[in-house]
Write a protein that binds this DNA or RNA. Structure first.
Lengths: 178, 178
DNA sequence: ACCTGAACACCGTTCAAGT
DNA sequence: ACCTGAACACCGTTCAAGT
């Protein structure tokens, strides 16, 4: 039996649990997806999940982190695109995860693990966006505020669904230099 | 016994429950404030709450609606103030209710009652802000998008605490006409 | 090391019974 | 009309026991 057999099995089963949780958290929502339902969807016992994750919030972190990595891979071709395209793409791409967005925000006040992930997420977004915004002509003294503003607008658009045209208008407005 | 004795008693007890729930939801959070705790804080039995409210979400609606009415009364002197002052005031005034803001967003997808309140809240905000923004010099074709943007920024600032100076910078930026 | 079944202390909500 | 105590079907989590 090869030396790395165990770790691979472990990673696979962990991934299965994360996949099951991703589906349920995305569609049904975090609150209405009990550990029992996640376990059933993953083909394990509720208690088994606790062998892989400290608690339900740790599972949520694994879910959103996995989705983030996926999205970042897909976003790679856009790294040098106009910032308006980046923002529009982000909203369209993450639209279906709006339940996760709101629940992460809500649980930041409850779970330190989620709060930590959320903070890291925002530093990453700030870094990614600052470049595109300065290329769009943002004055350097406004750059930080514009970055924050853009992130807030994306989050707002994810949480408050608007018509496509309205959405585009807001994003063009937020990226417009002044 | 006067004819209106009952209704007054009823309103008073209802208010006591709302007051107890407001304190707990604001400080401890919605999820961690069980109906049993709210009941204890209000000096009643958990089941009694269900005589006054359909469920926990209806109680949450009563809480946020009460806080909104309070805030609107306090905001009256600002109705003709510069929009930047309005936005800054709103963030400072509602800062302590950030837990309620995030939980309302999270439960919009779960509770139709909360979703309905949330929609009404946003139409109200849009109406209140559009006036101030056009007076700040917003071009009429941008007015709708700027209104939405401002609301998103206020919500973002409530959910993501920033230093006072940073906050002021973002609000001045979002209200700046272009 | 990994997984289970049984158990624990809760939870929101309901309902028959009281006044 | 208003309020209660007991009960219901869950919940996240723990833990002794298995392999």
């Amino acid at each position: 039996m090869p030396r790395n057999r165990r770790p691979i099995d472990r990673a696979e089963k962990r991934d299965e649990i994360v996949a099951a949780a991703t589906g349920l958290f995305t569609d049904v929502g975090y609150d209405d997806s009990s550990m029992a339902k996640v376990a059933a969807a993953a083909g394990v016992t509720p208690t088994t999940i606790y062998w892989y994750f400290a608690d339900k919030d740790a599972l949520l972190v694994a879910v959103v982190d996995h989705l983030l990595q996926e999205a970042l891979l897909e976003a790679a071709p856009l790294f040098d695109a106009p910032v308006v395209d980046q923002l529009l793409w982000a909203v369209e791409r993450l639209e279906r995860y709006s339940k996760l967005v709101t629940v992460v925000h809500a649980r930041c006040a409850i779970s330190p693990a989620i709060d930590a992930w959320h903070n890291e997420f925002h530093s990453l977004m700030d870094t990614l966006l600052a470049n595109g915004l300065s290329q769009a002509g943002a004055r350097s003294e406004d750059l930080e505020a514009m970055t924050r503003m853009s992130v807030f607008v994306v989050e707002g658009l994810l949480t408050h669904p608007l018509a496509l045209e309205e959405r585009r208008q807001i994003i063009e407005l937020v990226a417009r230099p002044r």
